[in-house]
Write a protein that binds this DNA or RNA. Structure first.
Length: 270
DNA sequence: CCCGGAACCTGAAGGC
DNA sequence: TGCCTTCAGGTTCCGG
Protein backbone atom coordinates (compact mmCIF):
# COMPACT_ATOMS: atom_id res chain seq x y z
CA UNK A 1 0.00 0.00 0.00
CA UNK A 2 2.41 2.61 -1.15
CA UNK A 3 1.20 6.13 -0.46
CA UNK A 4 2.91 9.45 -1.05
CA UNK A 5 5.90 8.89 1.29
CA UNK A 6 6.54 5.43 -0.11
CA UNK A 7 6.32 6.56 -3.74
CA UNK A 8 8.55 9.55 -2.98
CA UNK A 9 11.14 7.30 -1.32
CA UNK A 10 11.16 4.85 -4.21
CA UNK A 11 11.34 7.69 -6.75
CA UNK A 12 14.39 9.18 -5.05
CA UNK A 13 16.11 5.80 -4.93
CA UNK A 14 15.42 5.24 -8.64
CA UNK A 15 16.76 8.68 -9.56
CA UNK A 16 20.14 7.85 -8.03
CA UNK A 17 20.50 4.70 -10.13
CA UNK A 18 18.78 5.14 -13.45
CA UNK A 19 18.38 8.84 -14.20
CA UNK A 20 19.97 9.46 -17.59
CA UNK A 21 19.93 5.77 -18.49
CA UNK A 22 18.64 4.46 -21.80
CA UNK A 23 16.15 1.62 -21.83
CA UNK A 24 17.79 -1.15 -23.83
CA UNK A 25 15.18 -3.86 -23.44
CA UNK A 26 11.65 -4.47 -22.24
CA UNK A 27 10.08 -7.69 -21.11
CA UNK A 28 6.37 -7.31 -20.65
CA UNK A 29 5.11 -10.33 -18.78
CA UNK A 30 1.54 -9.21 -18.18
CA UNK A 31 -0.07 -7.36 -21.08
CA UNK A 32 -3.19 -6.48 -19.11
CA UNK A 33 -1.24 -4.20 -16.80
CA UNK A 34 -0.65 -1.74 -19.66
CA UNK A 35 -3.57 0.70 -19.79
CA UNK A 36 -2.26 2.77 -22.66
CA UNK A 37 -1.36 2.36 -25.52
CA UNK A 38 -1.48 -1.26 -26.76
CA UNK A 39 1.10 -3.60 -25.15
CA UNK A 40 2.94 -3.84 -28.48
CA UNK A 41 3.13 -0.08 -28.93
CA UNK A 42 4.11 0.32 -25.30
CA UNK A 43 7.18 -1.87 -25.74
CA UNK A 44 8.15 -0.51 -29.15
CA UNK A 45 7.86 3.13 -28.17
CA UNK A 46 9.71 2.68 -24.89
CA UNK A 47 12.74 1.02 -26.43
CA UNK A 48 15.91 3.14 -26.77
CA UNK A 49 14.41 6.03 -24.85
CA UNK A 50 16.48 7.76 -22.21
CA UNK A 51 15.05 8.46 -18.76
CA UNK A 52 15.57 12.19 -18.40
CA UNK A 53 13.86 12.51 -15.04
CA UNK A 54 11.57 10.67 -12.64
CA UNK A 55 8.85 12.56 -10.85
CA UNK A 56 6.08 11.75 -8.42
CA UNK A 57 2.53 13.09 -8.63
CA UNK A 58 0.23 11.79 -5.89
CA UNK A 59 0.91 8.08 -5.81
CA UNK A 60 1.98 7.95 -9.46
CA UNK A 61 5.49 7.69 -10.87
CA UNK A 62 6.09 9.81 -13.97
CA UNK A 63 9.18 9.00 -16.02
CA UNK A 64 10.15 11.79 -18.45
CA UNK A 65 11.54 10.19 -21.59
CA UNK A 66 13.89 11.63 -24.19
CA UNK A 67 11.23 11.32 -26.89
CA UNK A 68 8.90 13.59 -24.93
CA UNK A 69 6.60 10.83 -23.82
CA UNK A 70 5.87 9.93 -20.22
CA UNK A 71 5.96 6.49 -18.66
CA UNK A 72 3.45 6.31 -15.82
CA UNK A 73 3.47 3.65 -13.12
CA UNK A 74 1.03 3.08 -10.27
CA UNK A 75 1.80 0.39 -7.68
CA UNK A 76 -1.72 0.22 -6.24
CA UNK A 77 -1.58 -1.99 -3.14
CA UNK A 78 1.10 -4.60 -3.64
CA UNK A 79 3.28 -3.31 -6.45
CA UNK A 80 7.05 -3.22 -5.98
CA UNK A 81 9.79 -1.63 -8.08
CA UNK A 82 13.15 -3.34 -7.71
CA UNK A 83 16.53 -2.49 -9.17
CA UNK A 84 18.33 -5.72 -9.90
CA UNK A 85 21.65 -6.72 -11.39
CA UNK A 86 20.43 -10.07 -12.54
CA UNK A 87 17.08 -10.61 -14.17
CA UNK A 88 15.20 -13.30 -12.33
CA UNK A 89 11.56 -13.75 -13.20
CA UNK A 90 9.31 -13.92 -10.17
CA UNK A 91 5.89 -15.46 -9.75
CA UNK A 92 4.19 -12.07 -9.98
CA UNK A 93 6.48 -10.23 -12.37
CA UNK A 94 4.63 -7.64 -14.46
CA UNK A 95 7.44 -6.09 -16.51
CA UNK A 96 11.20 -5.73 -16.63
CA UNK A 97 12.94 -2.66 -18.06
CA UNK A 98 16.56 -3.32 -18.89
CA UNK A 99 18.86 -0.32 -18.53
CA UNK A 100 22.11 0.44 -20.32
CA UNK A 101 23.95 0.24 -17.00
CA UNK A 102 24.03 -2.87 -14.85
CA UNK A 103 20.52 -2.33 -13.51
CA UNK A 104 17.16 -3.62 -14.55
CA UNK A 105 13.95 -2.12 -13.23
CA UNK A 106 11.68 -4.96 -12.19
CA UNK A 107 7.97 -4.32 -11.61
CA UNK A 108 6.49 -7.06 -9.43
CA UNK A 109 2.89 -7.04 -8.20
CA UNK A 110 1.34 -9.88 -6.28
CA UNK A 111 -2.25 -8.76 -6.76
CA UNK A 112 -1.73 -7.40 -10.24
CA UNK A 113 -3.68 -4.18 -9.64
CA UNK A 114 -0.71 -2.03 -10.61
CA UNK A 115 -0.79 -0.14 -13.90
CA UNK A 116 1.47 1.14 -16.67
CA UNK A 117 0.92 3.95 -19.17
CA UNK A 118 2.89 5.54 -21.95
CA UNK A 119 1.38 8.89 -22.91
CA UNK A 120 2.22 12.18 -24.61
CA UNK A 121 0.40 14.23 -22.00
CA UNK A 122 0.66 13.36 -18.33
CA UNK A 123 -2.81 14.79 -17.76
CA UNK A 124 -4.13 11.59 -19.28
CA UNK A 125 -2.85 9.91 -16.11
CA UNK A 126 -2.86 12.55 -13.37
CA UNK A 127 -5.11 15.24 -14.82
CA UNK A 128 -7.81 14.97 -12.18
CA UNK A 129 -5.61 14.80 -9.10
CA UNK A 130 -5.97 17.35 -6.33
CA UNK A 131 -3.09 19.49 -5.07
CA UNK A 132 0.19 18.03 -3.84
CA UNK A 133 0.04 18.17 -0.05
CA UNK A 134 3.75 18.99 0.17
CA UNK A 135 3.58 21.58 -2.63
CA UNK A 136 2.93 25.31 -2.72
CA UNK A 137 -0.64 24.78 -3.90
CA UNK A 138 -1.75 23.11 -0.68
CA UNK A 139 -2.72 25.87 1.68
CA UNK A 140 -5.04 26.01 4.67
CA UNK A 141 -7.42 28.07 2.54
CA UNK A 142 -7.50 25.52 -0.28
CA UNK A 143 -8.07 22.70 2.20
CA UNK A 144 -10.83 24.69 3.91
CA UNK A 145 -12.54 25.40 0.60
CA UNK A 146 -12.51 21.73 -0.31
CA UNK A 147 -13.83 20.64 3.07
CA UNK A 148 -16.64 23.17 3.04
CA UNK A 149 -18.08 21.71 -0.15
CA UNK A 150 -18.54 18.19 1.22
CA UNK A 151 -20.46 16.42 3.93
CA UNK A 152 -18.69 13.07 3.61
CA UNK A 153 -16.58 11.81 6.53
CA UNK A 154 -13.28 13.66 6.73
CA UNK A 155 -11.42 10.35 6.52
CA UNK A 156 -13.02 9.60 3.16
CA UNK A 157 -12.32 13.08 1.86
CA UNK A 158 -8.61 13.19 2.59
CA UNK A 159 -8.26 9.77 0.97
CA UNK A 160 -9.96 11.13 -2.18
CA UNK A 161 -7.19 11.65 -4.72
CA UNK A 162 -9.18 14.32 -6.53
CA UNK A 163 -9.39 16.35 -3.32
CA UNK A 164 -5.76 15.93 -2.19
CA UNK A 165 -3.23 13.77 -4.00
CA UNK A 166 -1.18 11.05 -2.37
CA UNK A 167 -2.83 10.38 0.99
CA UNK A 168 -4.05 6.83 1.58
CA UNK A 169 -5.45 4.87 4.45
CA UNK A 170 -2.42 4.81 6.75
CA UNK A 171 -1.42 8.46 6.59
CA UNK A 172 -5.03 9.63 6.71
CA UNK A 173 -5.45 7.88 10.06
CA UNK A 174 -2.16 9.30 11.32
CA UNK A 175 -3.03 12.85 10.20
CA UNK A 176 -6.47 12.74 11.85
CA UNK A 177 -4.96 11.41 15.07
CA UNK A 178 -2.32 14.14 14.98
CA UNK A 179 -5.09 16.71 14.55
CA UNK A 180 -7.35 15.10 17.23
CA UNK A 181 -10.22 14.79 14.74
CA UNK A 182 -12.63 11.86 14.68
CA UNK A 183 -12.49 10.17 11.25
CA UNK A 184 -16.28 10.22 10.83
CA UNK A 185 -16.60 13.98 11.31
CA UNK A 186 -18.46 15.46 8.33
CA UNK A 187 -15.93 17.45 6.30
CA UNK A 188 -17.93 20.68 6.37
CA UNK A 189 -18.26 20.55 10.15
CA UNK A 190 -14.59 21.16 10.93
CA UNK A 191 -14.06 24.57 12.46
CA UNK A 192 -11.33 26.94 11.36
CA UNK A 193 -8.88 25.80 14.01
CA UNK A 194 -9.41 22.18 13.08
CA UNK A 195 -8.79 22.93 9.40
CA UNK A 196 -5.56 24.74 10.28
CA UNK A 197 -4.45 21.89 12.52
CA UNK A 198 -5.37 19.24 9.97
CA UNK A 199 -3.44 21.08 7.26
CA UNK A 200 -0.33 21.09 9.46
CA UNK A 201 -0.87 17.49 10.53
CA UNK A 202 -1.13 16.19 6.97
CA UNK A 203 2.17 17.81 6.06
CA UNK A 204 3.80 16.65 9.27
CA UNK A 205 2.87 12.95 8.97
CA UNK A 206 3.81 12.81 5.27
CA UNK A 207 7.19 14.45 5.88
CA UNK A 208 7.80 12.11 8.79
CA UNK A 209 6.92 9.16 6.56
CA UNK A 210 9.44 10.28 3.96
CA UNK A 211 12.09 10.88 6.62
CA UNK A 212 11.72 7.23 7.66
CA UNK A 213 11.77 5.88 4.10
CA UNK A 214 8.12 4.88 4.02
CA UNK A 215 6.12 2.31 5.95
CA UNK A 216 6.60 -1.41 5.40
CA UNK A 217 3.30 -2.61 6.84
CA UNK A 218 2.95 -5.37 4.30
CA UNK A 219 4.47 -5.41 0.84
CA UNK A 220 6.34 -2.15 0.56
CA UNK A 221 10.07 -2.28 0.00
CA UNK A 222 12.71 0.00 -1.44
CA UNK A 223 14.25 -0.74 -4.85
CA UNK A 224 17.20 -2.49 -3.16
CA UNK A 225 14.83 -4.71 -1.19
CA UNK A 226 15.25 -2.80 2.08
CA UNK A 227 12.30 -2.09 4.36
CA UNK A 228 11.03 1.34 5.33
CA UNK A 229 10.83 2.30 8.99
CA UNK A 230 7.94 4.77 8.99
CA UNK A 231 5.48 2.23 10.41
CA UNK A 232 7.52 2.12 13.62
CA UNK A 233 6.48 5.75 14.09
CA UNK A 234 2.75 5.14 13.61
CA UNK A 235 0.62 6.08 16.57
CA UNK A 236 -2.73 4.60 15.59
CA UNK A 237 -2.55 3.18 12.05
CA UNK A 238 -2.59 -0.63 12.16
CA UNK A 239 -2.30 -0.54 15.94
CA UNK A 240 -5.68 -1.90 17.00
CA UNK A 241 -5.87 -2.69 20.70
CA UNK A 242 -2.51 -1.09 21.42
CA UNK A 243 -2.41 1.89 23.73
CA UNK A 244 -2.78 5.43 22.49
CA UNK A 245 0.63 7.01 23.12
CA UNK A 246 -1.02 10.08 24.66
CA UNK A 247 -3.82 8.75 26.90
CA UNK A 248 -3.28 4.99 26.97
CA UNK A 249 -6.74 4.11 25.67
CA UNK A 250 -6.73 1.10 23.33
CA UNK A 251 -6.77 2.12 19.67
CA UNK A 252 -10.16 1.48 18.07
CA UNK A 253 -10.93 0.42 14.51
CA UNK A 254 -14.07 1.12 12.53
CA UNK A 255 -14.95 0.69 8.89
CA UNK A 256 -15.39 3.86 6.83
CA UNK A 257 -16.24 3.47 3.18
CA UNK A 258 -14.97 -0.08 3.25
CA UNK A 259 -11.64 0.79 4.81
CA UNK A 260 -10.26 0.08 8.25
CA UNK A 261 -9.92 3.31 10.18
CA UNK A 262 -7.81 3.38 13.31
CA UNK A 263 -8.26 6.10 15.91
CA UNK A 264 -8.17 6.88 19.61
CA UNK A 265 -11.75 7.20 20.90
CA UNK A 266 -10.62 9.55 23.68
CA UNK A 267 -8.18 11.84 21.84
CA UNK A 268 -10.41 11.96 18.75
CA UNK A 269 -13.92 12.43 20.19
CA UNK A 270 -16.98 12.47 17.94
C1' DC B 1 -24.34 14.75 -3.77
C1' DC B 2 -23.45 10.64 -1.11
C1' DC B 3 -23.13 5.85 -0.30
C1' DG B 4 -22.48 0.92 -0.93
C1' DG B 5 -20.95 -2.66 -3.62
C1' DA B 6 -18.56 -4.88 -7.42
C1' DA B 7 -14.58 -5.50 -10.04
C1' DC B 8 -9.62 -6.10 -10.53
C1' DC B 9 -6.38 -10.15 -7.76
C1' DT B 10 -3.63 -13.06 -4.35
C1' DG B 11 -2.16 -14.79 0.01
C1' DA B 12 -2.54 -14.62 4.92
C1' DA B 13 -5.32 -15.51 8.77
C1' DG B 14 -9.21 -17.30 11.27
C1' DG B 15 -13.09 -20.64 12.03
C1' DC B 16 -14.69 -25.20 12.11
C1' DT C 1 -4.27 -31.15 8.48
C1' DG C 2 -7.40 -28.95 5.38
C1' DC C 3 -11.14 -26.65 3.51
C1' DC C 4 -13.75 -22.54 3.50
C1' DT C 5 -14.50 -17.69 4.35
C1' DT C 6 -12.91 -13.25 5.21
C1' DC C 7 -9.88 -9.57 4.93
C1' DA C 8 -6.33 -6.54 3.20
C1' DG C 9 -7.50 -1.53 0.46
C1' DG C 10 -6.00 1.87 -4.53
C1' DT C 11 -8.95 3.06 -8.10
C1' DT C 12 -12.90 3.05 -11.14
C1' DC C 13 -17.50 2.27 -12.25
C1' DC C 14 -22.33 1.54 -11.58
C1' DG C 15 -26.75 1.72 -9.38
C1' DG C 16 -29.85 3.41 -5.64
Amino acid sequence: MPELPEVETIKNALLLRIKGCTITGIELIRDKSVHKPTPKQFCEQLLKQRIEDIRRRGKYFLFDLSGGEILGIHLKMTGVLLLENKIKLQKHSIAIFRMENRFSLHFVDQRKFGSLWLVDDENEIVGNLGPEPLGQGFTTEILGNTLRRHTIPIKALICDQNAIAGIGNMYADEALYEASIHPLTPSNRLNKNQVTTLHKSIIKVLEKGIAHNGASIRHYQLPDGAQGMAHTQFRVAHRIGKNCPVCGTPVNRICIRGRGSYFCPVCQPE
